[in-house]
Design a protein around this nucleic acid. Structure first.
Lengths: 234, 234
DNA sequence: CAAATGTCAAGAGCAATGCTCTCGGTTCTT
DNA sequence: AAGAACCGAGAGCATTGCTCTTGACATTTG
């Protein structure tokens, strides 16, 4: 309904141009060094003009966060799509490796979305959609494996999750047909993937692991077994 | 040999006073909002005077990082010391809970040491000692369990870790007497503990897990089994 | 004991930052 | 064509980390 006026067009273009500059600056110097004035300089504007497009530095950051989630989601999706549906272990390893590869290639973006939240910044609702993309890919993998019956069901939970009922009910919708213990194991494994990548990226593995890539494969392979994905030895 | 002159005494006192103020500011407003001028204001100094004690903001931050590692290490050690040596599952759960409890009580400090590294900041060598304290407690638990023979040895690694040789050799020194697969599982589990706490603290579990405390216990219990600590069902 | 040396807090100042406001000029809308 | 909405530029404010200089004090040395 709103006619695309010349103004609207140039506005959209300029918005994209600003985002591009911000992306570059983020990738090069990190989120804390992201300066609205510097971005303005790069696009040949004056700082106050940028405020017509992004009302604050945080809004710009939010846009970049959504961007980063999408970039990661794309990378993982693309990688996983190339693997045969029935090769569950391959799919799992591919997903994990794609996450790590993306993180290594975009450390600042990774830190932005998975590191400590930037100070005084509250993630707006807009970010929760893109944030769950990667998780959903993983969930789909488990659903598929479960449906095919090719699944090493983990033993029942050792600790009764009675107080977890509501949470598990909600999860059961996403994890259609997957057992309670598998859902929990999936969450635990996902936290471990994230933790492993973060440890490597944030330097916690310094003086502990040197062959990072090899360690990652070994670790993810063990996690595959943990969540019930059929593995060599199984 | 160096006589404790009046000057040296007041210097030490002032240094501690500055650190206190910085700690408070960090705990309240987070690391990025830590302003040298603000702590100067709080201790009733002028900003330039603080530079006599800490040559830069980063040096102050380093002191706070060491501080945070020590605080966490203390908390975990104290908690774990209260548990009978032979109650391995209890020790494991206590360690994990202590980490989470400390993280929830000191979110900014946790973010400082386990979140994304602060921009342009390179962790100096001084920090690696305190950083490994918690890990060492965990390692000791595994060594004890292994020595007592009360240990559900995980199956051999599904993926041959030939390229991991050097790393595993180095680890074997710390993990005296523990098998390769257990060492790897311990690392994976540790990454998961860290990931789980971070997810909760950084908001990644929003709309996923509501009963955080209960979920944490369930998750850590599963991880105990994963690393080989004898669990109920075992 | 007195002079030389080292240390200290303070203040001014620099180059940045995020953000606000006002001022003309342009582009839409009616 | 007139009025409203929008836009970029510029000046300005409060804040930051950090440097340099200055004068007062403490400490060590001759």
């Amino acid at each position: 309904m709103p006619p695309v006026t010349a103004r609207a067009r140039v506005r959209a273009e300029l918005t994209e141009e600003i985002l591009d500059a911000a992306r570059r600056q983020l990738a090069e110097h990190g989120s804390a060094a992201l300066s609205l004035r510097a971005v303005a300089r790069e696009v040949g504007m004056v700082s106050s003009a940028v405020y017509r497009y992004f009302p604050s530095r945080d809004e710009l950051l939010t846009a970049l966060i959504v961007d980063a989630y999408d970039s990661l989601g794309d990378a993982v999706e693309r990688a996983e799509a190339k693997v045969g549906r029935a090769k569950y272990l391959d799919r799992w390893m591919t997903i994990c490796r794609a996450v790590r590869t993306w993180a290594l290639a975009h450390p600042h973006e990774y830190a932005l979305i998975y590191g400590s939240p930037v100070p005084g910044y509250r993630a707006p609702v807009i970010t929760i959609g893109p944030a769950t993309r990667v998780a959903l890919i993983l969930v789909q993998l488990l659903i598929d494996a479960q449906r095919d019956g090719v699944f090493a069901e983990p033993p029942p939970l050792t600790r009764s999750p009675k107080a977890l009922g509501a949470d598990l009910d909600r999860l059961a919708d996403a994890f259609a047909g997957v057992s309670e213990s598998t859902m929990v194991h999936a969450l635990v494994a996902w936290a471990s993937v994230y933790g492993t990548v973060s440890f490597e990226l944030f330097g916690q593995f310094h003086n502990v692991i040197a062959a990072n890539s090899q360690y990652f494969d070994v670790a993810m392979s063990e996690l595959a077994t943990f969540v019930g994905i059929p593995n060599r030895r199984a």
